[in-house]
Amino acid sequence: MNNSRKLVTILMADDDADDRMITREALEEAGLANDLHMVEDGEELMDYLHHRGKYSNGVSSPRPSLILLDLNMPKKDGREALREIKNHPDLRRIPVVVFTTSKAATDISSSYDLGVNSYMTKPTKFSSLVEAVKGLGKYWFEMVELPPKEL
């Protein structure tokens, strides 16, 4: 439970409201939902990261420690967003984990080619989802040294 005290900013991009809800529940169960932000498509994700549009005030859009990215999204899909992030000199340092239902090998390899940090498929069982999210949290927020938030 000490993890819950630590403020971890997670940004999740997923067009599916159900998934967002289930993932939120799983993250809550895993104790990682203390600063969870959700966007619904790739455009919104980029707006959030660049503090544009409704995120232009900057307060409601803190720099995330981890991005959970769905691949298949309207407007701008996860692959395009991933390319933009990984081509951005600053944003590229934010770990991005693809979190999708696609098990297609082409998706997996192209994502890694674009520089994704991890690729996960969404489990069908909630318990498995919780396990997966816990694993994510343990890995990214306890084991790995991330670059400092502000240069």
Binding site: D16, I22, E25, T101, S102, T124, K125, F126, S127, L129
Partner: peptide, 20 residues
């Protein structure tokens, strides 16, 4: 098949949640 999976996954997921 891919698009069919999505709702199915939801059914499984929420069924699981319901059971739990």
């Amino acid at each position: 098949a891919h698009d069919l999976q999505e709702p199915l996954r939801k059914i499984l997921m929420f069924g699981d949640r319901l059971q739990a």
